[in-house]
Amino acid sequence: LFLDEIVLFFLGLANKVLVFPFETDFSFVALVPQKDMALRAFTLCLRVATELPEERQIILFAYRTPDYDELNVWREKDGRVSFYMSGDGTFYHLPPLSTFRTSLCLTWESRTGLAAFWVEGKRSTYQVYKPGHGIRPKGTVLLGQDPDKHLGGLEATQSFVGELTDLNMWDFVLSRSLIQAWHYGHKIPKGNIFDWATIQYELSGNVMVVDDD
């Protein structure tokens, strides 16, 4: 996948946490979607903890095709949380990420452009962002780094440091009740793009897989 290396993929992270212990420009986890990521709607959920200071930009999720950042989720230098789809982003004032795990979901659908973040099962205000847009397939999904070009251009000052777990993604908008159920750890329909329990992934650099104790 990267630099013509031989890639060894692993399967499933049930009851596991990804630990990114240090700021680097080479540590990441590549995720293999279960289906084509030509998306007109999605729900992305994950649990995240970090001790990086608020004024430090952090990439939380990056999906890039050869020419575009198709879906990037950030914590910005001013502490806001944002996401970008092929161009300018949209920004939200959310409770700050911290050393204690935050459950974070993002929903968007093309028909209306309605987009919202969900923190601990509570929805932000809706924003209208890129109605009619479509996310393109055949890209690469990374955790821990933001590729400024396809399969490269990584910067330590944007890297994720902390813990990520329970990342799931669906190609539709989950209802409030299902997002709240996910937040509380109840069983809900498995993510049909990414399901943490069966996810296919590749580790590169200094990333640890540890038990979720």
Rank of each mutant, 00 (worst) to 15 (best):
F61W: 10
A62F: 02
R64G: 15
T65H: 08
P66W: 02
P66Y: 03
P66C: 02
D67L: 15
Y68M: 12
E70A: 10
L71N: 06
V73R: 00
R75N: 04
R75L: 03
K77M: 13
D78P: 06
G79H: 03
V81E: 02
S82Q: 11
S82R: 09
Y84C: 11
M85T: 13
M85E: 09
D88G: 14
T90H: 06
T90V: 15
F91D: 13
Y92A: 07
L94Y: 09
L94M: 12
P95N: 05
P96W: 07
L97I: 06
L97M: 09
S98L: 06
F100C: 08
F100I: 15
F100S: 10
R101N: 08
R101H: 13
R101W: 12
R101I: 11
C105S: 04
L106Q: 03
R111M: 12
T112L: 11
G113H: 09
G113M: 10
G113S: 11
L114F: 07
A115Q: 04
A115E: 07
A115T: 08
A116R: 10
F117R: 01
F117G: 02
F117M: 03
W118T: 08
V119I: 07
K122T: 10
R123F: 14
R123L: 11
T125A: 08
Q127I: 11
V128Y: 05
V128E: 07
V128W: 05
V128G: 04
V128Q: 08
Y129N: 11
P131F: 15
P131C: 12
P131H: 10
G134S: 13
I135H: 02
R136Q: 13
R136F: 14
P137D: 05
P137T: 09
K138S: 06
G139E: 07
G139W: 08
T140Y: 02
L142P: 01
L142N: 03
L142Q: 04
L142M: 14
L143F: 00
L143N: 00
G144N: 01
D146A: 12
D146P: 01
K149G: 13
L154M: 15
L154P: 03
L154K: 07
A156P: 11
S159T: 01
S159L: 01
F160N: 00
V161H: 00
L164W: 00
T165A: 05
T165H: 02
D166H: 11
L167T: 01
L167V: 07
M169L: 12
M169C: 13
F172N: 08
L174C: 04
S175M: 08
S175Y: 03
R176T: 13
S177H: 10
L178H: 08
I179S: 05
W182R: 04
H183N: 15
G185K: 06
I188P: 05
I188G: 09
P189D: 10
I193W: 01
I193A: 04
F194S: 01
D195R: 03
D195H: 15
D195W: 13
W196Q: 02
I199C: 03
